[in-house]
Computed example of a mutant assay.
Amino acid sequence: MTENATELERLAAQAESEERASEEAEQAAEAEWEDVDAHREQAAALAKMGVQGVEFLAGMIHPGHALDDNARAQGEASLLPVAMDFAGEVPEWLRPYLHYLGAGMWMGGVLFAAYKERRAEDAERERKEAEQAEQGAAHGG
């Protein structure tokens, strides 16, 4: 009888251990889904910011340029997979290249600012030339 009791205790302990492991697995899965939802929300926010940034830059290149709701939605859908890769922590594979990305973004920013400044100067020069042409025509020139 002692062998049967010992075997029964062992089976009960094993069942309890399996039940505990199952509960822990469920809790881990729930926590993982919460993280997935948070990750997806963060990625969606990044995608939306990306679309806003592109729209802003397009407006700088061509003043008055704007995206409609459909184009914004398409942009967010296009950027979401990329944002999923970059939401949260920086992926391990990208870490060795962060300094290259930072340098490239800095260079791009400087070049874009120079381009914007040149367009503003060109527009001002054209405005002055048109103004002088109007004055010359008004004075019979």
Rank of each mutant, 00 (worst) to 15 (best):
G108V: 07
W106P: 04
G102M: 07
D85L: 03
R119P: 00
P96F: 04
G88I: 08
E89L: 05
L101G: 12
A113N: 02
G102I: 02
V110I: 14
V110G: 01
E89R: 10
G109F: 08
G75D: 11
S78Y: 08
Y115G: 06
F112I: 04
G75F: 14
Y115P: 00
V110R: 12
A103P: 01
L111R: 13
V90N: 08
R118T: 03
V82H: 05
Y97I: 09
G109I: 06
M84F: 05
P96Q: 05
L80Q: 00
V82S: 14
V82K: 14
A103M: 14
G104H: 00
S78H: 12
E92I: 06
A77N: 10
L80S: 04
L80N: 04
L94A: 15
R118Y: 14
A114K: 15
W93T: 08
V82R: 06
G88Y: 05
A113L: 11
H99Q: 14
A103H: 13
L94Q: 08
P96D: 01
P91H: 08
S78Q: 13
P91K: 04
L80V: 03
A77F: 00
S78G: 13
V82Q: 07
F86K: 04
L79Q: 08
A103V: 10
W106Q: 14
M84C: 05
M105S: 02
A113V: 01
A83P: 03
M105E: 12
F112E: 07
G104M: 07
L80D: 08
